[in-house]
Design a protein around this nucleic acid. Structure first.
Lengths: 163, 163
DNA sequence: CAAAATCATATTGCGCACAATCTAATTTTG
DNA sequence: CAAAATTAGATTGTGCGCAATATGATTTTG
């Protein structure tokens, strides 16, 4: 029923290549969960989740952005951001307001509370560094490798979609 | 209002250390999303999600495991696995059955359909390798670095909980 | 052996994450 | 300028992911 040589076709794939502990995807997936679990106890006292925290980080870099701009920076769409931003607003960290010039857009700005949170972020950053047990240099290189990987995966996705 | 020296306190934290593109956590988070998005079009034809796919991978390595054993391998708890496994069962990939010897346990076994999916996994693996644009060696080293990072984060979490 | 403790799994509730769809506002075109 | 196309956000539905809790089975203890 299947093609003549299911096995022969796999000759450049060594046996055991499907083992979970050899999968880059699973290593990334597990690291992301581990990172999330490390942040959780650090963010819980502030009532923030990790995705909410990175939204604040993005705003500390550049305040007054549109939902779309935030989404592009973070790689999230409105289906994720809209409810998340409402929760951040309800918690008093941000304000949402329609752009007077273009009412399709919603501008997100930090409140004093949201800005003040940046001070606590330093401590969180240090705690995470400690937990990673990595040197500053190895963190930098691993970060760079992951950014490259992400860029290549996104490029591949674009080509597939374009085809 | 804030302490005397917001700036001085951060002297081992360089300016811009809070920039998103310097965060290892965000690089991991983004890479995980990019990986997921890359898998999606490859898995959609089979009606599988990425987490469902790694459950199958775990079962290809060792069939007939308990929910608990799967959870330990994948780093997921029953709140995640129970409904996921029900969907995999509904789709005909696995069977769930109470262990006769210890009725607290549920044994998960692959159906013929679930086993057959392993053949398609080879093609998916190749497509992912292509999309990563990495050499086999660089994939191996990055995978190893991420596993180390995950291990250290989990170790740190354990110490905190123990304290 | 019966009560208590432990264990495996399931359930509930909340918050992402994303596809698909909808609405309203703006821009483009004829 | 009006109709069509585009754009920005919001909404809905499905599936993780996890904390908290519930249920039922097994083991431990008195």
């Amino acid at each position: 029923m299947t093609d003549k040589r299911d096995e022969a076709e796999t000759n450049d794939i060594p046996p055991g290549a499907l083992a979970l502990d050899q999968q880059l995807c699973f290593a990334v997936y597990s690291a992301a969960h581990a990172m999330n679990r490390t942040y959780k106890p650090l963010l819980d006292p502030y009532g923030l989740t990790y995705p909410q925290y990175i939204v604040l980080m993005a705003l500390w870099e550049e305040d007054g952005r549109t939902v779309k701009a935030l989404g592009e920076t973070l790689g999230l769409d409105s289906g994720t951001l809209s409810p998340l931003l409402k929760r951040l607003e309800a918690a008093g960290h941000i304000r949402r307001a329609r752009d007077k010039a273009d009412e399709r857009q919603v501008l997100i700005t930090l409140t004093d509370k949201g800005k003040a949170m940046q001070g606590s972020a330093i401590g969180i950053l240090k705690a995470i560094r400690q937990a990673t047990g990595c040197t500053v240099e190895s963190v930098r290189s691993l970060t760079g490798e992951l950014q490259q990987l992400t860029a290549r995966l996104e490029a591949a996705a674009r080509h597939d979609t374009a085809a």
